[in-house]
Amino acid sequence: MLHPDARALLDLMVEKRIPPVNELSPVDARAAYRDRRGFTQPDAPAVAESRDWRIDGPHGPIPLRLLRPQGSVPGELLPGLVYLHGGGWTIGDLDTHDVLCRELANLSGAVVVSVDYRLGPEAPFPAAVDDSLAAYEWVRREAASLGIDAQRLAVGGDSAGGNLAAVVCLARRDAGLAPPAFQLLVYPATDQRQQAPSHAALGEGYLLTRDSMDYYRRHYLPDPATWTDWRASPLLHPDLSRLPPALVLTAGYDPLRDEGLAYAQRLTQAGSRSTHLCFERQIHGFITMGRVIAEANDAVWLCAAALRHALQP
């Protein structure tokens, strides 16, 4: 059964007549996503340092935010996580995922660098991929000056960000570059064809709907010919071997559930180490909603514990 916390949130959205994302322009959808976060997200925990800056990317500046965990010692080399936010490659930014990134930093003991990659429709595929790869490479190259141990640098993200994190790992392996030490994939989108059974079974009534997924895909991937490009659909890459260990977290009432499970399964079958964890009673997007969905806090803790374990010296 759907968790009562998730049910109460969905019912409240209906009661308050919150418009679905697909009825808004991208500009208005971004503002609504940013403005509503205070209702569902916990208070932002203090960290030892929060610093914003911009780096040069292949198509222009890329904003980043570095968060050092509370209690860390200045100058200490810590493990790191490059984090790519969710939002269908169309909405979301450094602020919408600031609380989650702070929680992951404090609970894992890692420096988290959040990436504000470019969004569609203004910058369609593969802009987000290019920015994500450039940001990861920059963090790895500058790791020592950032107080990060480059040998203990992971990549992660939720939803669209989980998709991009998986693509970063594949692209670096294919290019013969040093892979991330770990990949944290939170309900990742892995197949833009949207053919998995969970799409049909869960495409209405659980926050992420068939119409909203079409909205996001239309803005990020306006050309259907790109849907089967593995940089858009990492599940379709023919070789998932020799990839970093992965935690793939899914939600039972999420249309993306089955393609996340399929990705974890294919990683394992290819000889790459993966762990799959499904919060059976939850909806897509729940991990940032710890103020109103109690299990979100458990999910964050489990992700941080996996990071801490994977990145230990």
Rank of each mutant, 00 (worst) to 15 (best):
L84H: 12
P45K: 07
E76K: 03
G38W: 01
L84G: 14
I55W: 12
G57T: 04
H97M: 09
T96H: 06
C101D: 10
P26V: 05
G87W: 07
C101V: 06
A29Q: 01
S108M: 01
L81G: 12
F39Q: 12
A48D: 05
A110E: 12
D93V: 08
S108A: 05
V73W: 12
L67F: 13
P69S: 01
F39T: 13
Q70N: 15
I91W: 01
L67G: 12
G92D: 05
V115K: 01
E103D: 14
R118I: 03
V99P: 09
H59S: 15
R102N: 08
D52A: 15
A44P: 15
S25G: 14
S108R: 00
R37V: 09
A31F: 10
L100A: 11
A31V: 15
G60L: 00
D28K: 15
R51P: 12
W53C: 04
A48C: 03
V111F: 10
Q41D: 08
V82W: 06
R51V: 00
L64T: 05
W53F: 14
L81H: 09
Y117A: 00
T96M: 02
A31W: 15
P69E: 05
A29C: 08
G88Q: 02
L77Q: 12
H97D: 13
H85P: 07
N106S: 11
D56A: 15
S25K: 02
W89A: 07
R37P: 07
P19L: 00
G92R: 03
V113Q: 10
G57L: 07
D95S: 10
T90R: 05
V27H: 14
L24W: 02
R30P: 03
P58L: 06
Y117K: 06
I18E: 08
A110Q: 13
V27K: 15
A31R: 15
R34V: 07
L104V: 06
